[in-house]
Design a protein around this nucleic acid. Structure first.
Lengths: 158, 158
DNA sequence: GCAATGTGGTTGACATGTCATCAACCGTAG
DNA sequence: CTACGGTTGATGACATGTCAACCACATTGC
């Protein structure tokens, strides 16, 4: 209950800017991705992670962890993608509970068709607007924040 | 169909870091806000914008524009917040179509109770982890991206 | 072998966001 | 005053995300 340390003008500018960028960039990238490739961002992320894996297949829980998704969310989403023929499920060879998510040829085709345009959009709306110093600063700063958030369980002390 | 310019290692680090931070930071801030104050982030944003306004009231469309929300989304969300007694609607005095969103005493109490903790969380998980230079860099870079995105309609040429 | 407990994944109920549509309303032209 | 095009906000249908309950299987201890 101490007097709260509000954000000063510079801090507030950074915080507001971040949130505004987040919203606008998200909307625009999602819009272009859907228009150009018929994929949502979650679709793209699933396909992208799967396609970067040696056998184009991952255990559901492993994929969920990489994406920072709940298993439930991934399961629901995979059901929809499966209906569209982008992925399939296979049984785990040794663990009867496990589910293996596999990229279908159609899924591979979809990500390969979508990737160049999406990367170009990321460049056009973000990366290419930054100086090399800013890119490094962004990488460093986000890394630090991520490490804190994923490292500790929940630091509750001041 | 030109050879796509993929992201190089440094660019990819920044892009992945940004997206990971975004997800983790969002989850954590939302979690704490809900736990400590019983508000979702959208709730907080609505209350915050309203409370910063002279008469604690704004026209729906004006509020939607500030928040970068669609009128539909805001209308739905206000219906839920109204049921919880956080806001009310009034008729616009001169424009019969208009709807004025008003902060209730309960709404004001809610934002005043929530704000210190939320700001502290923003500090703890983001702001206080950055150097002054990084804060300025973040402000500058997000501002630039936002300006591009909100300025032009949709630049489609390379 | 078998109960007790833990883990992986699915499912349904529900909260939230989006889109399309609609009715009421404004401003202006006739 | 009427007609018309555009705006405002509400609403219903639908897509998506979350939470909690659940089932099947795995693991452990006896």
């Amino acid at each position: 209950m101490d007097a709260p340390r509000w954000l000063d003008a510079r801090e507030a500018r950074a915080w507001r800017g971040y949130r505004r960028m987040r919203r606008l960039l998200d909307l625009e990238l999602a819009r272009e991705l859907m228009q150009d490739a018929g994929l949502s961002e979650p679709d793209y992320d699933v396909l992208s992670d799967l396609s970067e894996t040696p056998d184009q297949r991952l255990r559901l829980s492993e994929l969920a962890d990489r994406m920072l998704w709940s298993r439930s969310r991934l399961s629901h989403h995979l059901a929809r993608m499966q209906q569209r023929g982008l992925v399939t499920r296979e049984e785990h060879p040794s663990d009867g509970r496990g589910s293996i998510v596999v990229l279908t040829p159609a899924g591979r085709a979809a990500i390969e068709a979508a990737a160049p345009g999406h990367v170009a959009a990321v460049r056009r709306h973000l990366i290419d607007l930054l100086t090399p110093e800013e890119i490094d600063a962004l990488a460093a700063l986000t890394q630090r924040v991520v490490d804190r958030l994923s490292g500790r369980p929940t630091a509750t002390e001041g």
